[in-house]
């Protein structure tokens, strides 16, 4: 019952997952990192740029310790994706306002209109139809709304159920830890690496378990673990990594290229220093 790749249209959000009838979750992949992630300057809190699948109730229940900062399961959240039925569409001068209902609650989605460009015509989006929304959760007075980046008509109704399964899986990931912690090694990893494989690194909160390194080669995982432990925002020199991990310099360089290409690490002061994209 594994399902694959939904939402090629909504910003590269990719999922893998399988729900075993009675056996609980066997695997899941989470939100892909949205572009624009930067190395965090020393000391500052990590800003979450992950795209999180949620229910509308989770958005309405999200804690808001300070303006513009929302947290779900005590994890900062900005970009979200959900599926709901369109209850109402009202065109405004600067935006189109959609009222969305997914059975867990309702929330307003604003899609801004660029007056320069032609109005975003999406005649398929009609009241009563299901749409996949991707956007950012924003405060508005005491209320909150989603600034919609994309709204896409749902044509395969299975996507609705898969979305809810995924929202639960991500919730459990944050509240109970990665799946690998509960599985006897092999099974979980096998499931994660089959088919459309998504690195789970963007999720944060991995806690150093195997799940954070899904999809990486053994050497790349070793190097990533090492530079995470070093916790040095200026980056770690490849020579130092080589000495400390007892990997040959050429292996370290290969691992470095892999980590940079996968978006898991970036080079810092020069091409020979790397730092991880996020710390667990």
């Amino acid at each position: 019952m594994a399902y694959s790749n939904y939402g090629g249209n909504d910003g590269g959000f990719t999922t893998t997952g399988a729900y075993g009838g009675g056996g609980g979750f066997t695997s899941f992949g989470g939100g892909t990192q949205v572009s624009g992630t930067q190395g965090t300057p020393g000391g500052k809190t990590q800003k979450s740029f992950t795209l999180r699948p949620v229910t509308i109730k989770q958005l309405n229940d999200a804690e808001q310790p300070i303006e513009n900062d929302f947290r779900i399961d005590d994890v900062e959240v900005t970009h979200v994706t959900f599926i709901g039925q369109i209850r109402n569409i009202s065109p405004q001068p600067t935006n189109i306002l959609y009222k969305m209902d997914d059975g867990t609650g309702t929330i307003e989605v604003k899609q801004w209109i660029n007056p320069e460009a032609e109005a975003p015509k999406n005649p398929e989006l009609e009241e009563g139809r299901y749409a996949r929304v991707t956007g950012a959760l924003k405060p508005a007075g005491g209320k909150r709304f989603v600034a919609g980046t994309t709204l896409r008509l749902v044509t395969d109704m299975n996507e609705i159920n898969y979305h809810f399964l995924e929202a639960v899986a991500v919730h459990l990931h944050y509240t109970r830890g990665p799946v690998d912690q509960f599985m006897a090694g092999g099974g979980a990893r096998k499931a994660v690496t089959s088919g459309v494989d998504v690195a789970m690194g963007g999720m944060g909160g991995g806690g150093g378990s195997g799940a954070s390194f899904a999809g990486l080669s053994r050497h790349a995982a070793t190097v990533l673990q090492f530079i995470k432990n070093e916790n040095n925002n200026e980056g770690v020199a490849v020579e130092q990594i080589s000495v400390r991990t007892k990997l040959g310099l050429s292996e370290v360089l290969k691992a470095k290229d892999e980590l940079v290409n996968e978006g898991r690490a970036f080079t810092t002061v020069d091409e020979n220093h790397i730092a991880p994209m996020d710390y667990d």
Binding site: M1, K57, T104, F164, L165, V168, L172
Partner: peptide
Amino acid sequence: DVDMAAVDAVVDLTHRYKDLF
């Protein structure tokens, strides 16, 4: 073309993890 196993799973989880639903 509806995956009833997924439908059943969502119903099950809805009541198991009410806070989300």
